[in-house]
Design a protein around this nucleic acid. Sequence first.
RNA 1: GGCGCGUUCGUCUAGUGGCUUAGGACGCCGCCCUCUCAAGGCGGAGAUCACGGGUUCAAAUCCCGUACGCGCUACCA
Length: 508
Amino acid sequence: MLPNKSLFLAVYFYIINYFHSYFLMSDKEIRVRFAPSPTGYLHIGGLRTALYNYLFAKNKKGKFILRIEDTDRNRYVEGAVENLISTLNWAGLQADEGPKYGGDYGPYLQSERLDIYNEHIKKLIDDGKSYYCFCTQERLTELREKQKKETIQTKYDKHCLKFSKEEIDNKLNNNIPFVIRLNVEPNKKILFNDIIRGEVTFNSDTIDDQILIKSDGFPTYHFANVVDDHLMKITHVIRGEEWISSTPKHVLLYDYFNWERPQFAHLPLLLNSDKSKLSKRQGDVAVEDYMQKGYLKNALINFIALLGWNAGDDKEYYTLDELTNAFSLEGVNKSGAVFNLEKLNWLNAEHLRNISNDEILIMLKDEISKSKYSNFNGTDEYLLLIIEAMKERVSFVKEYIEKCPYFFEPPSEYDEKVMKKRWKEDSPDLLKIFSQRIEQLVSPTKEGYERILKKLCEEKEIGLGRLIHPLRLALSGVGIGPGIFDLIFILGTEESLKRIDKALNQIK
RNA sequence: GGCGCGUUCGUCUAGUGGCUUAGGACGCCGCCCUCUCAAGGCGGAGAUCACGGGUUCAAAUCCCGUACGCGCUACCA
């Protein structure tokens, strides 16, 4: 008795689910962050990291936080923060907290949190977990070169760890420049669990006494990100794979502070077609580049979501909401994904077809204003007809212009191949008669044109193509495009007559 | 060099020990539809699951090794 069995199962799972969600709800709020540095533009890989963070947070009814890692003053670019925020917003990934948004855990610009870092580093120094280092740049490079020559691991030799309290105070008082380093205990096993990769193990011997505070008083990423993540109550650190190697340093810091570690999830890289890390040299990496090229945000989001994540089924077309519902970190792959433009283009076409004509109209008008037809003064109704006719034939909004310029200006030349193949001896005569007849149409409809054309072909005992092809050539100048009756209807009788006349004069 | 991570059709991927002669998608090719081009439908080529050993009655799936790729190895993030 199958129904009974499935009923039993349904009840069973309902109960399991109930308790499961009960425990989840009693859990603390999920908080994740996207923490880019303001280098001028948003990298497509950064957008994906932001997306996964966003999806994870929203799926768990948690918070998505934007934090700017601007502790490297050399890399700061004017206006980068605003640009980052607006690009993220364009993509639909609005942060719940962050610069410009505010929140209870601000400031969200690391450069405004210097006091916080100073306060925390003191504790570490007092505990002997970090120490002042007065080594000069010269000694450091010398040390490194020596180690390289001996082909041993390059790392700091704890030279400054030996100084007494008095010696340190003395140097400090004399304003000798210093940095503060992490005191890594030798020969300790450091392991952390990664949601995507499982257990990852390091030996502390392979970990350098990382600089935590630079000589300019700014913290390094490693220190700032741990302090901030803790203070901002970040529960899950979802970031790129390039951070795996420095995670033991972070883990050490959490332990030194006696703080609870967040969960880590290291995302696979986005790759060039040669499998190297996605770079500028081999194509566009800025999200703005894709915006400019006319990619729809929904398509871009859909595409990069699938680059490294899969729900475990065959679904490929997603809206942001659908992604939010389906997303889980368990569905994220381990290996890097090549950024394949062809699939992006296909997805763009798919999404474009699912947008209402009215919405496309708005985008099209914008596109026209930026094109050479900027002074086009056709009606919305006219453009809507074009949209309807071309919808299955375009992948980008701008192709509503590029693929059918004949809707915006008469053809100035005629495709030679088509001319050769389709323009027959009887073409001029047929077109002349056809012209005369459509001129009689009182209120032209597609069906009206169709009736006339079919009747004429019947009379002449020829196939429809015999007239359709030369007609298309005369009206559009090319051999491809929407159905001929759509074409002539959109153009209208008057314009069509002009174009046929012109073609008759120009095509021999 | 050291350390870490990875490896299923060209590309994105499904797969969590028997359901797999490895499934889907993009791209490519062919056919159908058809006034052209698309879209759509149908079909095809395309992966000895990196390689080599184990474990098991049974491995793409578990274990070990090797190769290759990538990442990190900064007072960058």
